[in-house]
Simulated assay, not measured.
Amino acid sequence: MTTNKEIVRRDPEEIWTEGNLDAIDEIFATDFVLHDPSSADEPQDRDDYREYVETYREAFPDVEYEVETAVAEGATVVVRYTARGTHEGEFMGLDPTGEHVSVSGMEMYRVDDGKITEMWTSYDALGLFQELGLIPSVEELGEEWNTN
């Protein structure tokens, strides 16, 4: 029997890193709900999640997720990860920069009857935007403020 932790690990490892989007239909329930505070359209459904993954994988086609910790208790599984990839495609209106980025995050999943039914995601979006040059870093802001 597959454990909830094994089901959840398929998301970062198989869907995100390997790009197997067909696995979304296998492991996510049809009534899946995604909670992403960085999205204006929150909450989102399974089709929205597929588009979310496609968007990021097109922008960072070599993305690799490293699951650093996975903890399961009952229907809840929490994953802490680091994602790394190279910005090679358009992302949020930004042309490819060629920058290699590293972003950490955590996700909490609920698994019912062998399917992921709900997910809450939180990642370092500010750090990602700084690595891509969309937002200045604190150091850059400090230098700018000190020269004025």
Results as ranks from 00 to 15, higher is better:
Thr2Ile: 12
Thr3Gly: 08
Thr3Gln: 09
Thr3Met: 08
Lys5Asp: 08
Lys5Met: 13
Glu6Ile: 03
Ile7Val: 14
Arg9Trp: 04
Arg10Glu: 06
Arg10Gly: 01
Asp11Val: 05
Pro12His: 05
Glu13Asn: 11
Ile15Arg: 02
Trp16Tyr: 07
Glu18Arg: 14
Gly19Trp: 05
Gly19His: 06
Asn20Lys: 14
Asn20Trp: 01
Asp22Asn: 13
Ala23Met: 15
Asp25Ile: 03
Glu26Ser: 11
Glu26Phe: 05
Ile27Leu: 08
Ile27Ser: 07
Phe28His: 14
Ala29Arg: 12
Asp31Trp: 03
Asp31Val: 00
Val33Lys: 15
Leu34Glu: 12
His35Asp: 05
Ser39Ala: 15
Ala40Pro: 11
Asp41Ala: 14
Glu42Val: 11
Glu42Pro: 02
Pro43His: 09
Pro43Tyr: 09
Gln44Lys: 14
Asp45Phe: 04
Asp45Trp: 06
Arg46Gly: 03
Asp47Cys: 06
Asp48Asn: 14
Tyr49Gly: 02
Arg50Phe: 10
Arg50Asn: 04
Glu51Phe: 15
Val53Glu: 05
Glu54Pro: 00
Thr55Ser: 13
Tyr56Arg: 08
Tyr56Ala: 08
Tyr56Met: 12
Arg57Trp: 07
Arg57Thr: 15
Arg57Cys: 05
Glu58Ser: 13
Glu58Cys: 02
Ala59Leu: 05
Phe60Asn: 10
Pro61Thr: 08
Val63Asn: 08
Val63Asp: 08
Glu64Phe: 03
Val67Pro: 12
Glu68Ser: 05
Thr69Gln: 15
Val71Asn: 07
Val71Pro: 04
Glu73Tyr: 06
Glu73Pro: 02
Val77Arg: 13
Arg80Ile: 04
Arg80Leu: 04
Ala83Leu: 09
Arg84His: 05
Arg84Met: 11
His87Lys: 11
Glu88Asn: 13
Gly89Thr: 04
Gly89Cys: 06
Gly89His: 07
Gly89Ser: 04
Glu90Lys: 07
Glu90Pro: 02
Met92Leu: 13
Gly93Phe: 05
Leu94Arg: 08
Asp95Glu: 14
Thr97Met: 06
Gly98Cys: 11
Gly98Glu: 05
His100Asp: 11
Ser104Cys: 03
Ser104Trp: 02
Gly105Lys: 10
Glu107Thr: 12
Glu107Phe: 01
Arg110Ala: 11
Arg110Asp: 13
Val111Ile: 09
Val111Thr: 07
Asp112Gln: 15
Asp112Arg: 10
Ile116Gly: 14
Glu118Ile: 03
Met119Ala: 12
Ser122Lys: 04
Asp124Thr: 00
Asp124Phe: 01
Gly127Phe: 01
Leu128Lys: 02
Leu128Gly: 00
Phe129Asp: 03
Phe129Trp: 11
Phe129Ser: 07
Gln130Arg: 10
Glu131Gln: 15
Leu132Arg: 08
Leu132Met: 11
Leu134Ser: 13
Leu134Ile: 07
Pro136Arg: 12
Ser137Cys: 09
Ser137Pro: 10
Val138His: 13
Glu140Lys: 14
Glu140Leu: 07
Glu143Arg: 15
Trp145Arg: 12
Trp145Tyr: 13
Trp145Gln: 10
Trp145Asp: 05
Asn146Pro: 01
Thr147Met: 10
Thr147Val: 15
Asn148Lys: 13
Asn148Tyr: 14
Asn148Cys: 02
Asn148Asp: 12
